[in-house]
Simulated assay, not measured.
Amino acid sequence: MSLGSRLKTILGGLASLALVGALVACGGSAGSGSTDTADAAADKTITVGASPSPHAEILAQAKPLLAEKGYTLDVVEYDDYVQPNVALSEGDLDANFFQHKPYLDDYNAQNGTDLVSAGAIHFEPMGLYAGKSSSLSAIPDGAKIAVPSDATNEARALLLLQDQGIIKLSDEAGLAATKNDIVENPHNVEIVEVEAASVPRTLSDADFGVANGNYALSAGLDPSTLLASEASDSVAAQTYANVVAVRSDDADSEKTRALIEVLTSDQIRDYINENYQGYVAPVF
Rank of each mutant, 00 (worst) to 15 (best):
I139D: 12
D36T: 03
A196F: 00
K144I: 01
V194L: 15
N242D: 13
K63V: 08
Q164C: 05
H100R: 06
N188E: 12
L128R: 10
D266I: 00
D141I: 01
N180Q: 09
Q162C: 01
S53E: 11
D43K: 09
G220V: 02
N275K: 14
N212S: 10
D94M: 04
L160D: 13
D106C: 00
I166F: 02
S234G: 09
S51W: 15
G278R: 13
Y107R: 01
M126V: 04
Y71P: 11
P52S: 10
E57N: 15
D43W: 00
E68Q: 14
Y276L: 08
A56Y: 11
Y129P: 02
P140F: 09
N185L: 08
D114K: 14
Q61P: 09
A151Y: 08
D205N: 13
A30Q: 13
F123Q: 03
Y215N: 12
T35C: 01
I166G: 04
A219E: 06
S135Y: 01
L17W: 04
A196N: 08
G70A: 12
A62Q: 11
N188K: 12
N108I: 06
E77V: 14
E190R: 09
G13V: 10
L169R: 03
D79Q: 14
D207M: 00
V76M: 13
V189L: 01
A197G: 04
N96V: 01
E184T: 06
R156D: 09
K132C: 03
E172R: 09
V20Y: 02
D205T: 15
S149D: 15
G142A: 03
G49F: 10
E57R: 14
K69P: 02
V244A: 02
A146G: 08
P64D: 11
A236H: 05
S134R: 09
N108L: 07
I166A: 07
G31F: 11
L19R: 03
S198L: 08
G49H: 10
V262I: 12
K168C: 00
S5G: 00
P223W: 03
S224N: 10
S224P: 02
G165R: 02
V75P: 11
S234W: 10
L23R: 05
A67N: 09
N185I: 11
I191R: 06
V24L: 15
V24D: 01
Q238A: 10
T37G: 07
L19K: 05
G27V: 08
I272Q: 08
H100S: 15
Y271P: 03
D92G: 09
Q277T: 12
L128E: 12
A18T: 13
D92E: 12
T45A: 02
E90A: 12
E190N: 03
L161I: 05
D92M: 06
Q83F: 06
A177H: 04
Y71K: 05
A130E: 14
A50E: 12
A41F: 01
G12Q: 07
A258Q: 04
G27Y: 14
K63T: 14
A245M: 05
G119P: 12
E254D: 13
K44D: 07
I182H: 04
A25W: 10
I167H: 04
V76F: 04
A41V: 06
I145F: 01
S51P: 01
A30P: 01
G31K: 11
D92K: 14
E124H: 02
G33S: 09
S232R: 10
L161T: 06
G49W: 10
N185Y: 04
V210M: 05
H122T: 02
L17T: 13
A15T: 13
